[in-house]
């Protein structure tokens, strides 16, 4: 029972402080869910991000729903309790948006154009850049890449995938979904031989 309250509180907090789009929110989810509560391992979190990017809808809602389910099941809950966990997390992550948008939606247009708010964003936006960078750096670990001594082939192949995916996205503007499908297809063939 306590895990549902913790999910409610944690995802309310995540919804309340996540500025700057889905990737900033991923960093906050990672910090709270993986680092702080250890509800999920780093590789489980990475898998959830992959699935959240490949399925329709906002990444924030997709990952909240998936994390809520996995956290409860990892803590020993039944799949049905997992479903309740996922509904709790997705409800909680939306709740601050409702409160904030409804309470001040009229004032907000004026408010977002005020210089005081702009000054806050002068510091907040660069901080969100750091958040996104930290999310990527934290995912560069042996869970996702393999151990360099124990599994050198997997490690080199994984680094090559990261570089290829980065270039494909940044330079050739290939859609992230296609990149993920190709990486998954490559993985299914390559890692069955090595």
């Amino acid at each position: 029972m306590i895990i549902f309250l913790e999910l409610l509180y944690t995802f309310f907090k995540i919804g309340l402080v996540s500025f700057g789009g889905g990737y900033g929110m991923l960093s906050v989810i990672q910090g709270e869910v993986v680092t702080r509560h250890a509800w999920l391992s780093m590789s489980e979190f990475t898998d959830i991000v992959a699935i959240s990017q490949m399925t329709p809808g906002p990444i924030g809602i997709n990952s909240a729903t998936f994390v809520g389910y996995t956290a409860v099941v990892n803590a020993g809950g039944t799949p049905l309790m997992g479903v309740i966990g996922s509904l709790t997390a997705s409800f909680a992550v939306m709740l601050p948006s409702f409160i904030i948008m409804l309470a001040i939606s009229r004032l907000f247009v004026k408010y977002t154009k005020s210089s005081a708010v702009n000054r806050v964003f002068v510091v907040l936006r660069p901080a969100v850049v750091g958040l996104i960078a930290s999310a990527a750096l934290l995912l560069m670990n042996s869970e996702n890449y393999g151990d360099i001594d124990a599994e050198p082939v997997r490690f080199v192949a994984s680094v090559a995938i990261t570089i290829a995916a980065f270039v494909a996205f940044k330079v050739y503007r290939i859609s992230p979904i296609l990149i993920l499908f190709l990486s998954g297809a490559f993985g299914s063939i390559f890692f069955s031989f090595f």
Binding site: G20, Y23, T46, V159, F169, G187, F190
Partner: peptide, 22 residues
């Protein structure tokens, strides 16, 4: 095996917006 291939690509897709958001 599919997820072994996906994980390094996810890292790249999270790293990429660092530069556009910057």
């Amino acid at each position: 095996n599919i997820f072994l291939g996906l994980r390094p690509a996810v890292v790249a897709l999270i790293a990429a917006p660092v530069f556009s958001v910057a």
